[in-house]
Write a protein that binds this DNA or RNA. Structure first.
Length: 406
DNA sequence: TCTGGGGTCCTAGGACCC
DNA sequence: TCTGGGGTCCTAGGACCC
């Protein structure tokens, strides 16, 4: 989907079309005030001048999506708000409306499945589609079917997308970026040298910032240069599995199937604080946040019908270092109190002298709740919790009125 | 006042078992 | 001069993706 989060907002606020708009994390506020102030008129009649601007933004979020006019200024996804403000202070900022975005996500995926049922979910705004068995899927190399999908999605949602058609997922993903927004690119096997090899290695889905840097250090910049390296040389530098995969990727080889169904491996909730917090000095506040995270993962598990065995925590220090700890229980659970107690034990195993910017709770080793033969024992009776649990208080206690004396 | 939130997969060492 | 070999599970960290 093209600039998905931003495009969804533009459907509500068509008056922002053509303007630099960024959708960003962080807090609501300015937009709530806006909606209240203009409660008497339709959203599409709120004057452009009334929208909050990046230059007025306070908070530590990143950009989720930027409209194409905003991208002209160099603003893009995953960029910190601070940096974006320097590049384009006049951009309009709106918060992510997850419910609305999810609604459109479900709709466009349903439209695709109606036409081409072999579809793989790749997150909220992206899918792989297998054209092989779709009637007419091979006409004009797939272009006809791609056009039909584009048109059907637009009619159902008013949103545009870009489609890449190729012999495999690896090349299709790259092809989808050739003609954005609202474009279609068909890439054949014989186009590898002319259309894929000139691209930077970072365009390969699976080569990220670290490997990109390392390759640059080895004087490999384009996919063609990567393809020219001996397989053994890549294996020596990047390990058996990754090195061999890189070589295959550079040669356009990828035999992964389009996977239509999968089970989740873990569920988690995490949050970055508005200001860095200290385990001792901000104990009540942290305790409340911690309990809330546990409650929310438990809710997620229950709502989706899963239970998990491995409870873990994640924290990020003010210097951005990350630490994780986890503990595997004897029994599966989706119980907020048990998750809270187990996570609390994990917390005791990390260094809490340094200030924290993020706290997260994760439940892994999932199983479907109904597939479970024996129900988990009630919370409080898990024998795998260390015995000390009952006697040592949690480092983070739940929120309560702060004491007057220090 | 840099740097979100929700995921997957891989690696590597150690425990433990047969 | 001695320390098997293979397999699985657990834990911590990190790369990468949307």
């Amino acid at each position: 989907m093209d600039a998905f989060f931003a495009s969804v907002e533009l459907l509500r606020y068509p008056q922002l079309k053509g303007l630099p708009v960024v959708i960003g994390g962080g807090r609501r506020g300015a937009d709530d005030a806006l909606l209240q102030r203009y409660a008497d008129r339709p959203l599409s009649r709120i004057p452009v001048e009334a929208f909050p601007l990046l230059r007025d933004y306070v908070g530590r979020g990143v950009i989720t999506t930027a409209t194409y006019p905003a991208r002209q200024f160099g603003v893009g996804s995953a960029m910190g708000m601070m940096k974006a403000t320097r590049l384009c202070p006049q951009a309009i900022v709106l918060p992510v409306d997850f419910d609305e975005v999810r609604r459109f996500s479900r709709t466009f995926k349903a439209v695709i499945r109606e036409i081409a049922p072999v579809m793989e979910d790749r997150g909220i705004d992206e899918v792989f589609i297998d054209f092989t068995e779709v009637p007419g899927g091979q006409r004009e190399g797939g272009r006809v079917l791609a056009r039909l999908i584009q048109k059907s999605i637009f009619e159902a949602t008013g949103l545009t997308c870009s489609i890449g058609v190729a012999p495999n997922k690896l090349i299709a993903k790259m092809a989808s970026e050739f003609d954005k927004p609202n474009g279609i690119s068909v890439v054949f096997e014989e186009d590898l040298a002319s259309r894929i090899w000139p691209l930077p290695v970072r365009k390969i889905n699976g080569i990220g910032p670290k490997s990109g840097e390392k390759l640059a250090g080895l004087h490999v910049h384009t996919i063609g240069e990567l393809a020219a390296q001996p397989r053994e040389w890549l294996v020596d530098n990047f390990g058996a599995a990754y090195g061999a995969w890189m070589h295959d990727a550079a040669w356009g080889r990828d035999d992964r199937p389009v996977v239509t169904e999968s089970e989740p491996v873990s569920m988690s909730r995490e949050t970055t604080f508005e200001r860095d917090l200290h385990a001792v000095r901000d104990r009540a506040e942290l305790g409340a946040i911690f309990t809330d995270l546990c409650t929310r993962v438990a809710d997620d598990l229950q709502r989706k019908g899963y239970v998990g065995k491995t409870i873990g925590i994640k924290l990020r220090y003010d210097d951005f270092r990350t630490a994780t700890r986890d503990h595997t229980l004897e029994h599966y659970t989706a119980d907020a109190a048990l998750i809270r107690r187990t996570a609390g034990q994990c917390l005791k195993r990390v260094d809490l002298r340094q200030r924290l910017r993020l706290l997260g709770v994760r439940v892994g080793k999932l199983a479907r709740a109904e597939a479970l033969a024996t129900p988990a024992p009630p919370s409080g009776s898990d024998e795998s919790s260390p015995r000390v649990a009952e006697h040592t208080p949690d480092l983070f206690q739940d929120a309560r009125p702060a004491p007057d004396v220090g």
